[in-house]
């Protein structure tokens, strides 16, 4: 184990740790508001390590959604991890499977981006990746713990715009995902379908149905465009 690589990774993780500070605090506060205690909040941040997924889960718990609806929605939101993991696969091919399984636990939007940049410079360095992932995760856990512990001490916390933390985070993630015109239309379509379903039923299925329909139409659009250009 190379200490130098490990701490080089930790150092690179500092901007991520800073970014996770407001997010983690906001998550802790919201989790508490939706009925989780401090231990449950920390446990979720330890085992899931997924900002968007955890925010959705506590939001849906608060709204009284069923367990299958919560998990299925999370699975869809986390589909992007499949892509992250698959695109890292060729770089970490030489590492043993058990090391891959440990490193995979720390994949997030931010650690993925950072590690992919470093692959070009130093190749897949086990200890460097571990440093990045571990310190990012520690920041996430610590900040959600603080948010959960002090959140209910501040009266009327929504006054400070905390009620918009969740939509704002999703808006940021959406902007990162809209990379071309097809993705833009897929997003518009998904939003409209989701709204239409949500006016009829509120069991949490609107997200799943809208996603499946819109992504499928995206594939068809992509296919048509390619045919018309070739």
């Amino acid at each position: 184990m190379s200490k130098a690589s490990f701490f080089a990774g930790a150092k690179k993780a500092i901007p991520i740790m800073l970014g996770y500070t407001p997010l983690g605090l906001a998550f802790g506060v919201i989790a508490r508001e939706k009925g989780l205690d401090v231990l449950q909040t920390v446990l979720m941040s330890l085992t899931s390590f997924s900002g968007s997924g955890q925010f959705i889960a506590v939001g849906m718990i608060g709204a009284g959604a069923s367990i299958p609806a919560i998990l299925l929605t999370n699975l869809l939101v986390n589909m992007r991890y499949l892509l992250f993991s698959a695109s890292m696969a060729p770089h970490v091919r030489r590492l043993p499977s058990w090391v891959q399984s440990v490193l995979a636990f720390g994949i997030t939007d931010e650690t993925f981006t950072l590690n992919m940049v470093e692959f070009d410079r130093r190749g897949a360095d086990r200890d460097f990746m571990l440093g990045v992932n571990l310190f990012a995760h520690l920041s996430w856990i610590a900040n959600s713990a603080i948010g959960a512990a002090v959140g209910n001490l501040i009266p009327d916390i929504n006054r400070y715009g905390v009620n918009f933390a969740l939509p704002a985070m999703f808006i940021a993630l959406l902007a990162m995902q809209v990379k071309d015109r097809t993705a833009f239309w897929v997003a518009i379509l998904a939003g409209l379908i989701s709204l239409a379903i949500y006016t009829v039923t509120r069991n949490g299925s609107h997200i799943i149905i809208a996603t499946v329909i819109a992504a499928t139409i995206g594939v068809i659009l992509c296919h048509c465009r390619r045919k018309s250009t070739s």
Binding site: Q177, A183, G218
Partner: peptide, 19 residues
């Protein structure tokens, strides 16, 4: 792979619109 690549944008929009 292409279908998966549209999922993040779709799911995020589907969450944002009603909220």
């Amino acid at each position: 792979i292409r279908w998966l690549s549209f999922v993040p944008a779709a799911v995020l929009a589907a969450i944002i619109a009603p909220s």
